[in-house]
Amino acid sequence: MSNAARIRIYLTGVGGQGTLTATTLLARTALDQGLEVTSGEIHGMAQRGGVVESTILLGGWMSPKIGHGEADLILGFEPLETLRGMTHLAAGGSVLSNTEPLPPVGVSTGREAYPDMARIRAKVEGCAAHSWFLPCRTLGLQAGSVQAGNSVLLGAACATGLLPFGPDALEAAIRTHLAPKLMDMNLRAVELGVRAVTSAS
């Protein structure tokens, strides 16, 4: 077991998006790579369209919880939730975020205003050492479904070099752990995520 890198990853999104499935896939990828993994999720009532937070801690952490200022990496599956989750970012931490909103009901009904992307980008860039923004829904649809957008973000994260494994490890985990009918679509999604990061840098 390698304890070389102690990394804390905070994932946030909206109930129904499939972020917990994505979290489990990334955690399995790490375990398959021989890393110590602790992962956590908080949902309960959140499956009814609320915020869903999850965590992956690599390298020997015992607690599944990530507090304020403790995340080395934030994966935001929805831009408003990326913004809300920024307090979890550690000094020197990085952020990858979807850019395509899922408006909460208060925004849909016009009672509240969704923060514009410029404000979200400014906040993220002000706090994070590195940040990447991707249109996950669009890229997911390009790969085959909205849900595949989650694999776009995971692929991108693996391509940043911030994790102790690369996209090849994620692809191997997809082949091992996903149902055969979902495999090709998710592999395409990973590829799109990797390309988005490598073309940006």
Binding site: G50, V51, L80, L83, P104
Partner: peptide, 11 residues
């Protein structure tokens, strides 16, 4: 923390 963000209660 960002203030005055739209809330996202379960629904």
């Amino acid at each position: 923390p960002e203030t005055a963000l739209p809330v996202r209660p379960p629904n």
